[in-house]
Design a protein around this nucleic acid. Structure first.
Lengths: 344, 344
DNA sequence: CTAGAATAGTAAAATGTTTTACCAAATTCC
DNA sequence: GGAATTTGGTAAAACATTTTACTATTCTAG
């Protein structure tokens, strides 16, 4: 490693020599422990600054077992939702001096397992994980074996008593459903989101619950699970139109699916927000600039990230807290893509 | 740390005992060094698997000085541009067994300095940095002192001979400028991007260069630097309209500024792509869905991330390469927001 | 048959911290 | 004025690896 004029890395030993004290004293000062006079503290700090000493965390972690690293594992950080979440995890952690190690799983459970092992090897103090599809309690057993705290986020894992921070997707679906019910919609379809996705299920249930208050049901043929992409939104709604099945409102798993639905509807000669209503979830920044602006249920990834980080740090500090389930509330944003039906 | 039934972490010592060999042998096998018979290799691997041994990287790093950690420092990972870049840095690094440590600077140079020091303490093997505004050669001197390789990306730092991977912003500006020149535009404004931003300057220069081929100049009063946000785009273009200064085309520092400009133009009673042309940079995924679809110069953050990671890994492997400057070419995407002028 | 080389593996030092047990000097108490 | 306590600090072990120098055994060549 390094060559040429690489300065020999300065260690605590040299700081001690420079300050005229023992190695132990320097360590004690730096960690604010032990009983050291103000005078020597000053002296040590002066030497630290003078020599540009940066503590070797590898050695520190090896000896003490403590670390200032937290592992953040998500599906795909290029997804803006996770990007925002990560940003707040990072800043919340940084505030307490923690550095974030990040990895994407691509929703692959094998890759997730490898990443977890690698991070354990690196000595992370805790994990924040948005579980890959197919994860169950056994997936995280290795983390428990090592006695490392972790909090799950975004996607819950059934039958698993770990900390969890997520959105209240049932409530979110309910907001969309209630809005459509109040507008008078009676034939509603639900598009997008993978079949196995727990958040999709909860949103769908929420929508159903609210619609049923008025006696409206969503037929299973009107529920089209699939990738949460714009492309799928276009394809699914296109097929729905071809099948000639009538509907007055489309609830989309997220805003991207919704913009895809827009395309299919326009293609089919319908005017969004007029002939047919569309609702999304997330409130991605652009959704207010679409034409028409999208009615959507806003989720708060940044708040989620910050909350998850706080929960993890609390657990790192205090071992024996009971597992918590924290659900953040969404918010309905009504724009121009929804109207009472039958106005065409 | 951990309590209750926490399994004692298994170390190389226990693997050695289980396999009936020495600690040194296990280490040699695991690192593929030394001369060990196939038979004992098999035996060791069997024990590793059986005991679920995960090597302690802290100890490894401490002793060997080598690490499998790379530090990624960006402005703000919640920015989709950096999010995509990060995703590809991560996956490229992961392919070689590296884990990515990430941090945001918020474009604050002090925070950047702290983050660099923290990462050095954690023992990163190398850095990928999108430099905070105000960085100069001295900012990175500490990294050099420690003999750690690094590559800069996205934003170049003047008078500094480090590896750099970025876009050819001059070419990008040129593409926008040439497009407008060919359409016949003669009064063009340039909106957004911080004054000090080197990429803004290069884009502007590129635009100017191409327009000047036809004798067109951009007056300094028609260059409005500012934050690269939608809000600023709206504000700046709004003010331009109020001042009554005529223009037929707006070049925006990026697509977000452009969508902001849309709003101000519509507000001012003009039709984008008709009365006035708008060009952006980036090609954010939604820009093709705006109304009208945005003509923009596409940049490739994912390719940039992957390229930067490759450059860093190459440098970690091979000390003494000469510093490289790699510029990726952009691509013009013509959509509906640009037309010849004077068609209103 | 023996000198030398190749093979397979090991013992032990070294890495930079933290932490425990301990010590000497100064101070307080009665 | 001596015992007890407090103050300020230190020596050395421990953490889990990697790596160097070395040994014991087997093989090869002449």
């Amino acid at each position: 490693m390094g060559q040429g004029i690489m300065k020999k890395r300065v260690s605590i030993k040299q700081v001690a020599a420079h300050a005229g004290v023992s190695v132990a004293t320097v360590s004690l000062v730096l960690n604010g422990k032990g009983r050291i006079s103000e005078a020597t503290k000053k002296e040590v700090h002066k030497s630290v600054k003078k020599l540009g000493f940066i503590p070797n965390k590898s050695a520190s972690r090896l000896r003490s077992g403590r670390s200032l690293l937290i592992g953040l594992i998500v599906n795909d950080i290029s997804n803006p939702f996770f990007a925002e979440l990560s940003a707040d995890v990072e800043s919340e952690a940084a505030r307490e001096g923690y550095l974030s190690v990040m990895a994407n799983t691509g929703d692959d459970i094998d890759r997730q397992r490898k990443v977890i092992e690698t991070m354990i090897g690196q000595g992370v103090a805790g994990f924040i994980i948005s579980a890959a599809t197919g994860s169950d309690a056994s997936t995280f057993q290795i983390i428990r074996d090592y006695g490392i705290p972790y909090v799950l986020c975004v996607r819950d894992v059934l039958d698993h008593d770990a900390d969890f921070v997520g959105f209240d997707n049932f409530m979110a679906g309910g907001m969309a459903g209630a809005h459509l019910r109040e507008l008078g919609h009676e034939s509603v379809v639900f598009v997008g989101g993978e079949q196995a996705n727990i958040n999709r299920r909860n949103r769908l249930e929420g929508v159903r619950e609210e619609l049923s208050r008025q006696g409206t049901k969503i037929d299973d043929a009107c529920v089209l699970p699939g990738p949460a992409t714009r492309e799928f939104g276009t394809k699914a709604v296109g097929e729905l139109l071809e099948r000639g099945r009538p509907f007055t409102a489309v609830v989309c798993f997220n805003d991207y699916v919704a913009i895809g639905a827009y395309a299919a509807l326009v293609e089919g000669g319908m005017q969004v927000g007029h002939d047919v209503s569309v609702v999304g979830f997330d409130n991605v920044p652009e959704s207010g600039a679409w034409s028409p602006p999208l009615t959507t249920v806003e989720l708060f990834p940044r708040a989620l990230g910050a909350r998850a980080a706080k929960a993890l740090l609390a657990r790192i500090g205090e071992e024996s807290l009971a597992a918590e389930r924290i659900l953040l509330s969404p918010r309905l944003i009504v724009r121009k893509s929804t109207r009472p039906p039958g106005r065409s």
